[in-house]
């Protein structure tokens, strides 16, 4: 990736954070922490790698993403709106009665969403099914999934992990949003999820660990993952829950919290500073 490409993607990440904060602040409450931690991963996928067509969201040969941590819907909606799957104006309907943007991702409501999620632990199994199905139907699309570290507590995640390696799913690339937080506190004090690299490797996956907010490092890891032909890939992305909202960063209470107009202003002032630094 060239330096100017990297800078463009970093700028895009700031724009996506703006849309996400604005979306949640407009409603007044939401899953802000885990939305902000996945932004670079989504930006890398949707602005550089995924073969998707906003005009034809169900195009059969497309690449697909399963957002297993379905509560990060707001971040994904920002990306999909910015890419033109629907209008950015629709972002202000988040969670309102009759909306097509529910807090948790819903494939039947939102153009560009490939799987319905929200009950944690179910996403990776669906991704495995899609990856096996792509192979059966000779579809060229690759399958991506994004799981949370809390999400990883569910036994089903590990059942899916076994299936993926058993079936040699080289077309499956999964990211763990390793923000080290769940609802009840830091994972360290709730359910330890350490040695993730070893865990996934021992389940037969090609596992890597990178800085999940470093677009270049993420991109390099993704290139290596995409080169794997016969093993599923796991990219463990070290992230910060609530990234780039300094007032809430790394506080487990940011999982689902109220956001006021004032919080939004503070965040936007910080985003302006980050944008300035990229000039």
């Amino acid at each position: 990736m060239t330096t100017s490409e990297a800078t463009a993607l970093k700028r895009k990440a700031i724009e996506i954070r703006k849309l996400t904060v604005d979306q949640i602040a407009h409603l007044g409450v939401g899953h802000i922490g885990g939305s902000l931690s996945v932004v670079e991963i989504l930006v890398l996928l949707y602005y550089r790698h995924l073969n998707v067509d906003p005009q034809n969201p169900r195009m059969p040969e497309r690449d697909k993403l399963v957002m297993s941590k379905g509560h990060a819907g707001p971040a994904l909606y920002s990306v999909l709106a910015d890419r033109g799957f629907f209008s950015t104006g629709m972002l202000h309907t988040l969670n309102q009665g009759g909306t097509n943007l529910p807090s948790h991702c819903d494939m039947n409501r939102t153009p560009g969403i490939d799987m319905t999620t929200g009950s944690l632990g179910q996403g990776l199994s669906a991704a495995v099914g899609i990856a096996i199905g792509h192979r059966l139907q000779h579809l060229p699309g690759r399958v991506f999934a994004l799981i949370g570290d809390g999400d990883t507590n569910e036994g089903q995640t590990w059942e899916a992990a076994m299936s993926a390696s058993m079936y040699g799913l080289g077309n499956l690339v999964v990211f763990t949003d390793y923000n080290k937080m769940q609802i009840d506190g830091p994972i360290e004090s709730v359910m330890k999820t350490d040695n993730l690299n070893d865990r996934w490797t021992s389940f037969g996956w090609f596992a890597q660990r990178v800085d999940g907010h470093d677009i270049v490092a993420l991109s390099e890891a993704l290139e290596r993952a995409l080169a794997e032909a016969s093993r599923p890939s796991m990219i463990i992305a070290d992230t910060v829950k609530g990234k780039d909202m300094p007032q809430i960063e790394n506080d487990y209470k940011n999982h689902n919290m109220p956001l006021t107009a004032e919080d939004r202003e503070r965040a936007f002032a910080h985003f302006a500073m980050l944008e300035e630094a990229l000039r």
């Binding site: 409603l27 969670n95 529910p102 948790h104 819903d106 319905t116 929200g118 009950s119």
Partner: peptide, 8 residues
């Protein structure tokens, strides 16, 4: 379950 939506 309100804002948590259909899954919840």
């Amino acid at each position: 379950a309100a804002y948590n939506g259909g899954t919840h």
